[in-house]
Amino acid sequence: TTQFTVHSPEQAEQWKEYAKQKGLEVHVQKKNGTWHVTIH
């Protein structure tokens, strides 16, 4: 599991796309103005 924080919805979307291409599961949670992205 990879977990990191991004600071814009655009970055979060890019990671979603990346994960989809790799066939991975991605979870994005918005918290205090940042987005926590978890890739399984």
Rank of each mutant, 00 (worst) to 15 (best):
V37I: 14
G23H: 06
G33Y: 04
A12N: 01
Q3L: 08
Y18K: 03
T5D: 08
Q11P: 02
L24R: 03
I39D: 00
K20L: 12
K16I: 15
A19M: 04
E10M: 07
Q3W: 11
S8F: 06
V26L: 06
V28L: 05
T38S: 06
Q21S: 13
V26A: 07
F4V: 07
K30W: 14
Q21D: 10
A12I: 08
H27R: 08
E13W: 09
Q21I: 11
V37K: 00
Q3Y: 13
Q14G: 07
L24E: 02
V6S: 03
Q29Y: 13
F4G: 02
E13A: 10
E25L: 12
Q14H: 12
T5K: 08
V26Q: 01
H7S: 13
I39G: 00
T2I: 15
K22W: 14
H7P: 09
T1L: 13
E25G: 07
Y18E: 03
F4H: 04
V26H: 03
W15P: 00
T1R: 10
K31H: 12
H36N: 06
A19G: 14
K31D: 09
K16S: 07
Q14W: 15
W15S: 01
H7V: 08
P9I: 15
H27D: 11
V6N: 01
T5C: 11
W15C: 06
Y18S: 03
K22V: 10
H40D: 06
Q14V: 10
H27Y: 11
V37D: 00
W35I: 05
E10G: 06
E10R: 07
K22Q: 14
V26P: 01
Q14A: 14
H7I: 08
K16D: 03
G23N: 07
S8H: 06
Q21M: 11
E17G: 04
P9C: 09
V37Y: 01
S8C: 04
I39L: 10
H40T: 13
Q29P: 01
S8D: 07
T38W: 07
A19H: 02
G33P: 01
Q11R: 08
S8L: 06
Y18W: 15
H36S: 08
F4Y: 07
Q21R: 12
Q29N: 09
Q3S: 14
T1G: 09
V37H: 00
T34A: 14
H27W: 09
T34H: 11
E17S: 08
G23S: 04
P9M: 15
W35H: 02
A19E: 01
H40Q: 11
T38Y: 07
K31Q: 12
K30M: 14
Q11M: 12
V28W: 03
L24P: 02
E13P: 01
P9G: 10
K20E: 10
T2Q: 12
G33I: 02
H27Q: 09
H40G: 11
V37T: 01
Q3I: 12
V37C: 01
E10S: 06
Q3N: 08
Q14S: 09
E10L: 08
K31I: 15
A19D: 01
E10T: 07
E13G: 04
K31M: 13
N32W: 04
W15Q: 01
V28A: 02
I39Q: 00
E17F: 07
V6F: 05
A12P: 01
H27E: 12
A12Y: 05
V26E: 00
E25Y: 13
G33F: 04
T34P: 01
L24T: 03
T38M: 07
K16V: 15
S8G: 06
V28C: 00
K20S: 08
Q29I: 14
H7Y: 14
E13K: 09
F4R: 03
T2F: 15
K22E: 08
N32C: 06
K16T: 08
Q14K: 13
G23F: 04
T1Y: 14
E25W: 10
Q29R: 09
K20N: 09
Q21V: 09
Y18V: 04
H36V: 15
H7G: 11
G33H: 06
H36R: 08
K31V: 15
I39P: 00
T38P: 00
E13L: 09
Q14M: 14
A19I: 03
P9L: 15
V26N: 01
E25F: 11
H27I: 12
K20H: 10
G23W: 02
K16A: 10
G23M: 04
T5V: 14
S8K: 04
K30S: 08
K30N: 13
Q11V: 12
P9Q: 15
H27S: 13
V37L: 04
T2G: 06
E17D: 09
T38Q: 05
K16M: 13
Q29L: 12
Q11L: 14
Y18T: 03
K22G: 05
K22P: 03
V37S: 00
P9K: 15
Q29T: 13
K22M: 15
Q3A: 09
E10A: 09
V26R: 00
F4W: 05
V6E: 02
I39Y: 02
W35Y: 10
E10Y: 09
P9D: 12
H40N: 08
E25V: 13
G23Q: 05
Q3M: 12
Q14N: 07
K20P: 02
E13D: 09
K22I: 09
P9N: 11
V6K: 00
T34S: 13
Y18N: 02
K20D: 06
H36M: 13
E17I: 10
E10K: 07
W35V: 02
L24H: 04
A19S: 04
V28M: 04
T5A: 08
P9A: 15
G23L: 04
H7C: 06
V28K: 00
W35M: 02
V26M: 06
K30V: 13
T1N: 08
